[in-house]
């Protein structure tokens, strides 16, 4: 049987290792940003189609994450989607005529919101709404349109022959 001091040393090292692991989990596996989730301000934007956008998806400006999608809801009157986004407090000078678009990371990747800067002197604040929006590009629709267009061209070229 080991002596008590040896076991105390063992217990101490064990606790240290445990804390180191907790620290690893807290810093390496999770984004520190999510700790400040309740800080910053909320802006909303309406989209005709948000297909594939998820809550907690990043909100970016010039490719830099400045916030996260907080909630996605459907407005039964206007028949469009309302996306509320929480923007980190340090980004408090975003022109209020900026536009929002739903973009895709890569060809098939996850959806995120991209903010394009406007030129206004007044800035977005809590509960502002972004007016200019561009909906998600749904690949099926594009391909569908493309095929339809190709078909039309073929049809119109035939009689000319």
């Amino acid at each position: 049987m080991e002596s008590t001091p040896a076991r105390e040393l063992g217990a101490g090292m064990f606790i240290l290792l445990g804390f180191a692991s907790l620290f690893f989990l807290a810093t390496q596996t999770t984004n520190v940003e999510s700790y400040v989730n309740d800080k910053g301000y909320t802006v909303t934007a309406r989209f005709e189609d948000v297909a594939g956008l998820k809550e907690r998806a990043p909100v970016t400006m010039a490719g830099v994450t400045i916030g996260r999608v907080e909630r996605i809801s459907f407005d039964p009157k206007a028949l469009n989607a309302v996306v509320s986004m929480r923007i980190s407090p340090e980004f408090d000078e975003i022109p209020d005529d900026s536009d929002a678009a739903i973009l895709t990371a890569g060809l098939l990747g996850s959806k995120y919101v991209g903010i394009g800067p406007g030129g206004s002197e007044t800035y977005l604040k809590n509960n502002s709404q972004i007016q200019l929006t561009q909906s998600a590009i749904v690949l099926e629709n594009i391909i569908g349109k493309l095929l339809f267009k190709l078909g039309m061209e073929n049809d119109s070229s035939k009689p000319a022959e």
């Binding site: 008590t4 076991r7 105390e8 063992g10 217990a11 101490g12 090292m13 064990f14 606790i15 290792l17």
Partner: peptide, 16 residues
């Protein structure tokens, strides 16, 4: 606390 420390050793270190 010494009694508890020894038991943390027994439960923790020995399961490591």
């Amino acid at each position: 606390p010494r009694l508890v420390t020894v038991q943390i050793h027994n439960a923790g270190v020995l399961s490591l």
